[in-house]
Write a protein that binds this DNA or RNA. Structure first.
Lengths: 233, 233
DNA sequence: GTCTATAGCCCGATAGAC
DNA sequence: GTCTATCGGGCTATAGAC
């Protein structure tokens, strides 16, 4: 079960399975999805306090009071949005480091997936970043429970590769941090990048260029220099 | 003249030079500095809308109405804070790429300076990041005028190095973006990093480790591979 | 320059009719 | 489920006494 399913408000008719309530359920799910899609964008653009639920409601085509029928309060909506972001992220990232694939291929996939998330879910990426920058005052516990263990696992995989001599002895923790930083930045700082590039928004070609450079940098940093013999120091 | 000096409110007694008003000026400057120091922290923690000037005033030890005597309104205070951040940043970064130094040394200094800014001015770094993530709705013009030209100049320097064969033919624009991303992240994402590292805050040793890895990655990406001859393609 | 008082606004949330 | 109406509170900013 995903985080977002856990956080969904219990709904009265959800367990009946009758055709009428099922039809209603579909409408309700669509409406919730519309609300969530607007919410992630507006929260990311305006911040938590800068966002009024009336604005979200208006953009989703319903009244503020009606929105509060679907979500109990503003904070619950906010956490639900972040749940969905984290769910989607974990789903894409979780299956990368498990198999016995080569380090190079795993890191290629990691960079590609994280960068694709920045491209396909810019609002979610930015909203997550804003929450973390502010000290994760509302979502820190969930990050601690759900994300941090996976990041630690990734670092452990890197360190395993190092101890097996598969990659150069880099600092595994900071390697992960820098990969995160570079890929995340193409969502968070796209405004600044667009100003430099004189574009309205980043193109697929920009992301392809970024992926190539980031991948090259990461692979170069872990590549074993054949000229250096095992040191005795 | 710096951005912050331009944005300072004109004050009545500033031009007299009399000893009494000079003494008052010093007090006023100290009070303004206190307000700005609290403002940058609270704006970064809570966002623009999430920050009330009453909170800033309280933390600086004066009343909200009194704060509004020193700064005309909330937005002016906010922009002044960002001016100071950008001033400090430009001051540190501007003198790096001018001289005829070697690319390796310039990039070492660039990473070191940007990372030191993240360590010494975490609130300023984070506040700037939040403004950019939200689309720079209040400070976009200043970024466009003051920062973007310098970033373009840096990119042009990288491209000059490439055309002179001093560094490998990487994508200069994205090289700058990734350096920015990696160094910036040690301010913006320190909360997440601390959770991974199980620390209250990042240590000097963490920043030293980061600097080493980032520098190695950047220098590896620009290093000329001696085995590859100049291609005819 | 610092104080009290308050105008004027927006917001989140609730109550209750239908 | 959707509506109208409204409460209670916090906010920016201003007015004016001292």
């Amino acid at each position: 079960m995903t985080l977002s399913e856990l956080n969904k408000p219990a709904r009265s008719g959800a367990a009946t399975g009758a055709s009428a309530s099922t039809r209603r359920m579909i409408n309700r799910d669509k409406l919730e999805a519309d609300i969530l899609a607007q919410a992630v964008r507006i929260f990311a653009e305006c911040g938590y306090e800068g966002t009024s639920i009336a604005t979200i409601a208006e953009q989703a085509g319903l009244s503020k009071q009606n929105l509060l029928y679907y979500f109990p309060n503003k904070q619950a909506l906010y956490k639900r949005v972040l749940d969905d972001v984290l769910d989607e992220w974990l789903e894409r990232m979780n299956l990368l480091a498990d198999a016995g694939k080569e380090p190079q291929q795993v890191l290629r996939s990691y960079v590609e997936a994280k960068l694709r998330f920045s491209r396909e879910h810019p609002w979610g990426s930015r909203l997550y970043a804003m929450e973390v920058i502010g000290g994760a005052p509302m979502y820190g516990q969930e990050i601690k429970k759900k994300l941090i263990p996976l990041l630690r696992k990734d670092i452990a995989v890197f360190e395993q590769w190092i101890s097996e001599g598969k990659i150069a002895p880099v600092n595994a923790t900071h390697l992960l941090f820098t990969i995160w930083a570079m890929t995340q930045s193409y969502a968070d700082f796209s405004t600044q990048m667009c100003l430099v590039l004189n574009r309205k928004q980043l193109t697929r070609s920009d992301f392809a260029d970024a992926e190539k450079l980031i991948t090259d940098m990461v692979l170069a940093s872990i590549s074993l220099k054949e000229s250096a013999p095992p040191s005795a120091a």
